[in-house]
Lab assay of single mutants.
Amino acid sequence: RGFLEKAAVKKMAKAIMADPNKADEVYKKWADKGYTLTQMSNFLKSKTAGKYDRVYNGYVIHLD
């Protein structure tokens, strides 16, 4: 289950990176699912340092 969630989160993160207008909708879905910042950090780990920082930081702001 965790692997599928991670894959889904990364897919949506890539969608945000391609079209930032989708961010609020995606952040709301993640918040509704109760994803914590720790979970998001783990889901968005990448071999490329900083690749998903913008998405993660946007989610931090959304939760605030």
Rank of each mutant, 00 (worst) to 15 (best):
K11H: 09
T48F: 08
T38V: 14
R1H: 10
T48Q: 10
N42A: 12
A49N: 11
F3Y: 13
V9P: 01
K10I: 15
M12N: 06
A49V: 12
Q39R: 05
N57V: 09
K28H: 11
D53V: 05
T38I: 11
K45G: 08
E5T: 08
K11P: 02
S41C: 14
I61E: 14
E25W: 10
G2I: 12
V55D: 01
L4F: 12
L4N: 13
A13Q: 01
G34M: 05
F43V: 05
K6Y: 11
L37G: 04
G50I: 04
D24M: 10
M40E: 00
N21F: 10
A49E: 13
G58Y: 03
E25G: 08
D24V: 09
L44E: 01
L63Y: 03
Q39E: 14
K45E: 13
A49H: 11
K10F: 04
A7R: 15
K47Y: 05
T48D: 11
Q39L: 06
L4Q: 13
Y59E: 01
G34K: 06
N21S: 14
R54P: 13
F3L: 12
A13C: 05
A8R: 13
W30T: 00
K6S: 11
H62D: 01
F43I: 09
M40S: 00
S46F: 05
K14F: 06
Y52F: 08
G34T: 03
R1T: 13
A18I: 11
I16C: 05
L44H: 00
A23S: 08
D32N: 09
K33D: 07
S41A: 15
K51I: 09
K28I: 06
K33F: 09
T36I: 03
D19N: 09
H62L: 04
K51G: 05
M40P: 00
F43S: 02
S41L: 10
Y56F: 14
G58C: 05
K10N: 04
K47S: 13
Y52V: 02
G50Q: 05
K29G: 08
V26A: 06
K29I: 15
G2K: 13
R1L: 12
G2S: 11
K47C: 12
D19C: 14
L37M: 06
A15N: 06
A18E: 13
T36C: 06
L4T: 12
Y59V: 01
G58D: 05
A7D: 09
Y52P: 00
K33M: 13
G50L: 04
R1D: 11
K47P: 10
K51D: 05
L37H: 05
A31N: 06
K11R: 14
A15V: 11
Y27K: 00
K10Q: 13
A15D: 06
K33T: 10
M40Y: 00
A31I: 04
A8F: 09
K10E: 08
L37Q: 07
K10T: 08
I61A: 15
D64C: 15
E25F: 09
A8Q: 10
K45M: 12
Q39C: 08
N57T: 09
I61K: 15
D64V: 13
P20E: 07
I61S: 11
Y35M: 05
D32F: 07
L37R: 08
A13W: 03
Y59N: 01
N21C: 15
A15R: 09
K22Y: 08
R54N: 15
A13Y: 02
Q39V: 07
D64A: 15
K29H: 14
I16Q: 00
F43W: 15
Y27R: 00
V9D: 00
Y35C: 06
K29S: 13
A49P: 15
K45H: 10
F3R: 13
K22Q: 09
M40G: 01
Y56M: 10
F3A: 14
A31L: 05
T48M: 07
Y56R: 02
K47V: 07
G50W: 03
D19R: 04
E5C: 11
A23R: 06
K29Y: 14
R54L: 13
M12Y: 05
A49M: 11
R54K: 14
Y52H: 02
Q39K: 05
E25R: 08
Y52G: 01
D53R: 07
N21E: 11
Y56P: 00
W30G: 00
Y59I: 03
L4V: 13
G34H: 07
K22D: 04
A18V: 11
L37C: 07
S46P: 05
T38D: 11
N42S: 10
R1P: 14
K51L: 11
M17P: 00
N42E: 14
Y59T: 01
W30N: 01
A8G: 09
W30P: 00
V55I: 12
Y27N: 01
L4C: 15
A15L: 12
L44N: 00
K51T: 06
L63D: 02
F43E: 02
A23C: 07
K10S: 04
H62Q: 03
D64F: 10
T38M: 11
V60N: 03
N42R: 12
A18P: 00
Y56I: 14
V9M: 03
M17K: 04
A8C: 15
Q39Y: 03
D19Y: 07
L37W: 03
V26T: 08
R54F: 07
R1V: 14
S41R: 14
K51H: 06
G50A: 05
D53I: 05
I16T: 01
K33H: 10
L4R: 15
F3T: 07
A49F: 10
Y59R: 00
D32K: 11
V60I: 09
P20F: 07
K22R: 12
W30C: 03
A15C: 12
K10R: 14
G58R: 02
G2C: 15
K29T: 12
A18N: 11
N42P: 01
G50R: 06
K6D: 07
A31S: 10
Y59K: 01
Y56V: 07
A13N: 01
Y52C: 03
M17T: 03
D64T: 14
R54D: 15
K51F: 09
V26E: 02
K28Q: 12
Y27L: 00
N42Q: 13
A49C: 13
A15G: 05
W30F: 03
E25D: 11
S46E: 07
L4S: 15
G50P: 04
M40W: 02
I61G: 08
D32A: 13
D53M: 06
V26R: 02
T36Y: 03
D19E: 07
K14G: 07
I61R: 15
T48I: 10
K22M: 14
T36A: 03
A31F: 08
K28T: 10
N42Y: 13
N57M: 12
K47G: 14
G58H: 03
K47L: 06
G34I: 02
M40H: 00
V60A: 14
Y52T: 02
E25P: 04
W30Y: 02
F43M: 12
A49K: 13
M17S: 03
N21M: 13
D32V: 08
L63F: 04
F43A: 06
